[in-house]
Design a protein around this nucleic acid. Sequence first.
DNA 1: CTGCATCCTATAGGATACTG
DNA 2: CAGTATCCTATAGGATGCAG
Lengths: 125, 125
Amino acid sequence: MMKDRQHSSEACLSSINAVKDALYVLNGKWKLPLIVSLINGPKRFNEIQRSLSEITPKVLSKELREMELNGFVERKVFDTFPVTVIYELTDYSDTLGPIIDALSLWGTQHRQRIVEMRKLEPVTT
Amino acid sequence: MMKDRQHSSEACLSSINAVKDALYVLNGKWKLPLIVSLINGPKRFNEIQRSLSEITPKVLSKELREMELNGFVERKVFDTFPVTVIYELTDYSDTLGPIIDALSLWGTQHRQRIVEMRKLEPVTT
DNA sequence: CTGCATCCTATAGGATACTG
DNA sequence: CAGTATCCTATAGGATGCAG
């Protein structure tokens, strides 16, 4: 029986490009965490900022605009005083679910692994 | 029945951090594509370079060393002339499978979506 | 062939202050 | 409250050349 690798050269290339395409849109430090932050429901600008500790308003603003352009987030303004703005995930952002789930799960497991490794390797300084 | 969001505030924070942890290790433009490139089997330095079109040797070298440190890749040297070096995925890198699958699938679908949208929005210049 | 040394630039991302 | 304006720095990543 033929091994996968025998006929996977083009498949490999197209996978690489598919992954690169995805990363191109989801680039940076904040895109995915931002989506996670909104999964529970719409949030206001300041709420998002607080949930992603350490992000500055300038960066958050920029990220949100990019996400809006990419169709992941919808911005809604309410004419109160002071003005109220909420950000809300779109249906399209739901398609990112598997990616986020996989990253979240792996991140959790990876953190545990690091902890385990620290136990096995006592301080060597 | 209670909605998820009611009791998901901490869960949300921990998901955000899990995702951030994962992204911290898998950061940059090349980590994941590099792994995809090796999925079919071990490759030599130049083979990897060719499969990831456009990556420069300096960057590839740096990425590979990081991946080695993180336990995703193993480097094997053969004492031929000129020297032969192959890079090979470790078992641990298999745990990234779901992430890569999800990214690859999404990337493919996303590309198609872009194409569809271009059809619907004829040139506006 | 493998990959380091050097140099270089663009940009991501942060600090701070300010506005409608 | 929801951002914008400015300024700043670190670094990712690329170009090129050379070495074992």
